[in-house]
Design a protein around this nucleic acid. Structure first.
Lengths: 192, 192
DNA sequence: GTCTATACCTCGATAGAC
DNA sequence: GTCTATCGAGGTATAGAC
């Protein structure tokens, strides 16, 4: 049976391609022509779906927000124990190490780029960080670290960002594994 | 007495301005016109000093290399104890917190941008990281951690990168101070 | 060494035929 | 909904007068 496309398939295809290219090449370095080519559209037809580049950026950030929420929900259902949930977070670095060694963390690098561009959408990107932050905080609260749960969450986020940054610089897989192990060890007795 | 300019003063002025703009706005987002304007030159005269944007980038990276070497030398002469030298490194985050909260780490953000652009100069930027890495390693060796001195050095670099990344995202000064304190505490008994 | 003028390209964005 | 054609702005880079 022939494939039936929903009316928004072109739109979602654009967002998917933009999401990938913004990650791989950066927001500014990605042109409409790049996205249109990879999405199989003409440049002109592009503006039927998005009126500006900022609109595409907003859609991409929204997509990443949704996927992050989904991922956190999956971890919650798959890991009844908060300790295992925190380990699941740490293991993103292992699971995505190939891409991280080439393009860094999707959230961190976009946030840094938008900060330098003084782009208003930086706030929306930070909101993805906040999603992680609040979720991590809740796990630390359940573990009995209510007092400084948020500081511990920020510490975990910080280490994941640091590992991603140096992984991109040195492309050292052993470093990533070593630091994830160290993070897991820290999780056994988290202090600040 | 009138100011006497060395023949390379225009050149060094360009590099200084480019260094600042590449940090504040990013490499790609900075145009020749931007640099020329801030350096007080016409666009045309620009190419008398630099034949291409990549040449300016190379000069900027070289400048940062020199300044990093100089900084490390100063720390060595000001701090006889390796422990104090490591603290001096950690304190860059405090000293530069205002700029870091807006533009991130100069080395880390440039390295991430060049990685996405697949720019050959990424290797030269990583060399600045290596300068820090080797210097930190030497301090840990003197402190008796010869076995995993390099891993400890990478861990310190990693944490400074992570702090810079989240500092840019959340613009939280208290977070920086807290994490530098935590890093100092870790330095008292560094483990991985 | 410094300037103006300009070539040539790609960018984001628009108009209008189909 | 998709296309081609095109605009104006801004990018890198060059030529040539002074």
């Amino acid at each position: 049976m022939a494939e039936i496309r929903s009316p928004s398939s072109a739109r979602s295809r654009i967002v998917e391609v933009a999401d990938r290219l913004f990650y791989e090449r950066g927001f500014e370095a990605t042109s409409f022509a790049d996205i249109a080519t990879d999405a199989g559209l003409s440049r002109g037809n592009f503006y039927y779906h998005f009126k500006s580049k900022d609109e595409i950026l907003a859609a991409v950030i929204s997509l990443r927000m949704d996927r992050t929420r989904e991922m956190l929900t999956v971890w919650e259902s798959e890991c009844p124990e908060p300790a295992d949930r925190l380990l699941a977070f740490a293991n993103i670095l292992i699971a995505n190490r190939a891409k991280i060694m080439v393009h860094g963390c999707p959230v961190g690098t976009l946030c840094a780029e938008l900060a330098k561009l003084e782009h208003g959408a930086q706030n929306e990107t930070v909101a993805i960080f906040t999603l992680f932050r609040d979720w991590l905080t809740r796990q630390f609260v359940v573990l009995g670290h209510g007092e400084n749960a948020d500081a511990l969450a920020m510490h975990m986020l910080m280490r994941s960002q640091g590992v991603a940054s140096l992984a991109t610089a040195f492309r050292d897989e052993a470093f990533i594994v070593r630091e994830v192990d160290a993070l897991a060890a820290w999780l056994a007795q988290p202090t600040l």
